[in-house]
């Protein structure tokens, strides 16, 4: 097994020399899920190997493992759980929405507008903001009401997640 993979690497070596460095990295390790988790202002993961990622997709919650079928999913507000290699506890981030793409080479790219670790939220604050937003739901201004509806959706998810 080891010999075979060495042989395979040797075979791909002349080819990979010509391609860009990102490609070589991808070709060298085949059987792990690589996660790119990026926000507009920060990059949380840039291609590190993970065991599993659970996503709050709009079509329902889904878990992504290595060699998943290529897909693209819109994410709803919810918790992204990341099971890193060599660690038993999942890292949890709450996102406000975004997109997840599984590339054919076992690379999962998640792009979200905002993401914060779940433990950084305060339950009291969530409750306070939730009552505030609910008050605005029946506002006469349609824009304010629509914004409040989105806020309530996000906050309710967040409240459920932090419980």
């Amino acid at each position: 097994m080891l010999f075979r993979s060495v042989a395979a690497t040797a075979k791909t070596l002349p080819r990979t020399l010509n391609t860009i460095s990102r490609r070589t990295y991808v070709e060298a390790v085949e059987n792990a899920l690589k996660l790119q988790f990026s926000l507009p202002h920060e990059t949380l993961y840039s291609g590190s190997k993970v065991n599993q990622v659970n996503l709050p997709a709009q079509s329902g919650k889904m878990g992504i493992l290595a060699n998943h079928v290529p897909t693209i999913e819109q994410l709803s507000p919810g918790v992204v759980e990341i099971l890193e290699e060599g660690s038993n506890t999942a890292k949890k981030y709450f996102i406000s929405g975004g997109f997840a793409t599984v590339q054919p080479n076992s690379v999962l790219s998640i792009t979200a507008a905002e993401a914060f670790p779940l433990e950084s939220f305060s339950q009291d604050n969530i409750r306070k903001l939730l009552t505030e937003a609910k008050g605005k739901l029946s506002d006469s201004d349609a824009v304010v009401a629509a914004e409040a509806a989105i806020t309530v959706e996000v906050l309710e998810q967040l409240e459920a997640a932090t419980k």
Binding site: Q36, S38, L39, P40, H41, E42, T43, S46, P70, I72, T101, Q103, P104, V107, S109, I110, T111
Partner: peptide, 18 residues
Amino acid sequence: AKAAAKMIDQADATFYDV
């Protein structure tokens, strides 16, 4: 900000590439 934005670009670009 530029580096983070580039990562987002990359994620998009790979999808369109494939």
